[in-house]
Structures are given as C-alpha cells and as structure tokens.
Design a protein around this nucleic acid. Structure first.
Lengths: 98, 98
DNA sequence: GCAAAGAACTTTGTTTTTCAAAGTAAATGA
DNA sequence: TCATTTACTTTGAAAAACAAAGTTCTTTGC
C-alpha cells in the first residue's frame, strides 16, 4: 500500500493539534495556543519551530495592546501535507488485508 | 477538549499498522506481517512486544508445515484502546476553535 | 527611572523512543 | 552434520521529546 502521503512530522500529538487548529483558523497566536493546548512555552515553541522549519507555517510578529504578539499561519505546503497525511492515515486504518 | 482516549502507544506508524491489520483480521502471523509491512525482524518484533506488554495482543506459537509459526491476535483491551484512539484522533482533527 | 511582569523564545540536560544490525535458539531439510 | 528458516533478543547509536531555567525585549506601576 502507498504510504507516500504519510508524514512523520505529524506523529507528534502537539504538532497534530497545532495543525488542526490552523486548519480551522486563519491564524492563531502563541499565548492562545499555549492556553488551548496546555503546553509549556518550551515544548510549544520547539514544536512550532519544527513545523516552521518544514515550511508548514509562517510566523508574524507584531504588537497588540502594546504587547508582543506572535501569530502562526499555515502555509499552502503545510495544508497540503496535513491533508495528505490524513488521507494516508485513513487508508492505513481502513486497510483490509485478505 | 478531552484527550483521555488518545494513546501514545499508537503514535508509531508500525504499531498503528499492526493494529489496523489485526482489526481487519482475526489473526496474522509474523512472517506475513513482516512481508506486508516491509519491516525488519527486530523492528517488527520489538513493536509487537510493545503491544503485547500493553496487553493489546496475544501470541500463539505453533508449527505450520513443520515450521515455527507465531500468530498475533488483538485482545479486547487492544481493540477498545485502538477504537478509542481513533475517536480521539478524529476529535482532535475536527476541532473547531472559536 | 527603576523594578516587576509578560511574551516568546532558546538553551540545557535528562529521559524516552526508534530501529537496524548482529547475534541466538530451535527445528527442519539436504 | 551443516545450512536454512522462523522468530526472536540484544546491542548500540541516533533522534526525539520535553520540562525547567535562563534570556531578551517591552511595557507598566510606582
């Protein structure tokens, strides 16, 4: 069976959650992600960095209410990779062998 | 959101495949799994051991055609854990935040 | 103007996981 | 008896995960 769409990057739960949040939202900021996912700063930041390095999301820094704010947004590449991974997962799970 | 059904054991691709094969088949033997999953002996054995330790599958040794044969079968616990994990995955992926 | 606080990291270090390669045991076949 | 097959176990090296602590920059309170 074809596993070319399967993506190891998404084997991590936090990254899976980050991506699925970014699929449902145009963007999401660090603090909100942190709260929502109940993650530590370090863990969240490093997993975001992993996704960013892979080109699956982009980062946009600004000030909101005079406080630093970092927004994350999925890239087209990220969206496709994630969608493909879900397809691969589905195929893998639904496999019916003789 | 509730992630109590999410199961780290199933973050590994090989273990995910093993379980999904055992969901579709009453039993499956080592050689066939190895061939089907294109895995090395060591890797397959250690992942089967992980699932066995967790109580997700049982092992049955016998001789077939005068050759040693090891059959793996999901347990009820394994089936439930896997089904639950799929539910958790689905929830996680379909999450719609504000 | 200085201390404290908040955001978003990075660094550090430990623990865990992954996995291939090599080694092993038991049984069969030539 | 020697090779082969099955199904492992052991070993070891590399990668990944992740929390805690440290860092930087900026704002706010006094």
């Amino acid at each position: 069976m074809d596993l070319s769409l399967y993506n190891k990057i998404f084997e991590n739960r936090l990254r899976l959650q980050i991506m699925s949040i970014l699929m449902a939202n145009e963007f999401y900021d660090f603090s909100s992600l942190k709260e929502l996912l109940d993650a530590t700063d370090g863990n969240l930041a490093s997993n975001l960095k992993t996704l960013e390095k892979e080109g699956y999301l982009t980062v946009e820094k600004s000030f909101v209410d005079r406080k630093p704010n970092t927004r994350y947004m999925k890239t087209d590449k990220g969206r496709k990779a994630f969608e493909n991974h879900l397809i691969a997962l589905e195929n893998l799970i639904k496999q019916q062998y003789k």
